[in-house]
């Protein structure tokens, strides 16, 4: 783990004496223990996930916005029982890649796609978008519960399109189940009828996760789900993600390298639309093969 030498830090003294130049604060690489910094921090996984199953495969995928490619011939496996983290600096195409997995990119008419993505061996371009999006659901960066009650937020997903049926009693069990899986049920049991927008930010985001889980998806996409949250809510959601990976394949986009290290089984580093490196969490952070990966995870840029 090597850090570039930080600049000397000067501090102006308050009582107008001579400016004091402090000691050089560069970290001596020789004295560093191997695997220092966050790489020595505990990871959240209790045990390595047993028997990961291939669910989705990205094959030579290129996505362009009005002719300008945002993702360039990327190939990746997405497995159930694993958390896959997409990392990289802003504008590297990781969110575009994530959104292409449930065809949300198609909402923008200027998008063109090459290559293919398969879900259980079937090209997703041949699936009907609404049924695909029920199998591959998504949680967004900003907590965005709908302006209705906590219960209705989850029930909305279970009901058919714009209908109000089935009625509350019929969906109640599934709603409780989804809230329970998202670890929110105990906190909201008494106020299921309160407006969802009155919950705290972390609770709102877990409600969004419950909403995404209510559709019984096979793959869960998370686009920087913790970037708007405080550290404590982040911790709760990270633990939740690690627990959920047994039942659904999880793909998470994150700006936060420490977070990727804490929760990911596999990490994909993207830079300017290219997939630079894909590997297990520990190998990519401890022993990156590519120079660009090494520079990024050591904080040289990004």
């Amino acid at each position: 783990m090597e850090f570039v030498t930080p600049p000397r830090v000067r501090r102006l003294s308050l009582d107008d004496e001579a400016t004091v130049v402090l000691d050089d604060v560069a970290i001596d690489p020789a004295r560093e223990e191997p695997g220092s910094g966050f790489v020595s921090a505990p990871r959240r996984k209790v045990a390595q996930a047993s028997g990961a199953i291939d669910r989705m495969a990205v094959e030579q995928l290129t996505i362009a916005y009005s002719g300008r490619p945002a993702v360039r011939s990327v190939s990746l496996p997405i497995r159930q029982g694993e958390v896959l983290a997409l990392i990289g600096p802003s504008g590297c195409g990781k969110t575009t890649l994530l959104r292409s997995l449930n065809r949300l990119t198609e909402l923008n008419r200027a998008t063109s796609t090459q290559g293919r993505v398969t879900l259980d061996g079937v090209d997703i371009a041949r699936l009907e978008p609404t049924s695909l999006r029920r199998r591959v659901t998504m949680v967004f960066q900003q907590p965005n519960p709908f302006p209705m009650s906590v219960f209705d937020n989850v029930a909305y997903v279970l009901r058919e399109q714009g209908k109000r049926r089935p009625k509350r009693k019929v969906v109640q069990r599934a709603v409780y189940d989804a809230l329970g899986r998202a670890g929110l049920l105990d906190e909201v049991r008494g106020n299921l009828d309160h407006p969802a927008l009155r919950l705290s930010g972390g609770q709102q985001q877990r409600l969004c996760i419950a909403r995404a889980l209510a559709a019984q998806p096979e793959v869960l996409l998370l686009d920087e789900p913790c970037s708007a949250l405080d550290p404590r809510s982040t911790e709760v959601i990270e633990e939740l993600i690690v627990k959920l990976r047994e039942e659904v394949a999880i793909v998470i986009v994150t700006h936060n390298l420490q977070q990727a290290y804490r929760i990911a089984d596999h990490v994909a580093f993207m830079y300017l639309g290219d997939l630079v490196e894909y590997g297990s969490g520990s190998s990519l952070f401890r022993a990156p093969r590519e120079q660009r990966t090494k520079d990024y995870v050591s904080g040289a840029f990004g």
């Binding site: 949300l104 695909l132 999006r133 659901t137 967004f140 960066q141 965005n144 997903v157 969004c208 209510a214």
Partner: peptide
């Protein structure tokens, strides 16, 4: 993103 959250659970 609120519209997309609805599309992302398979709503038309």
């Amino acid at each position: 993103h609120v519209r997309e959250a609805s599309y992302a659970v398979g709503k038309t």
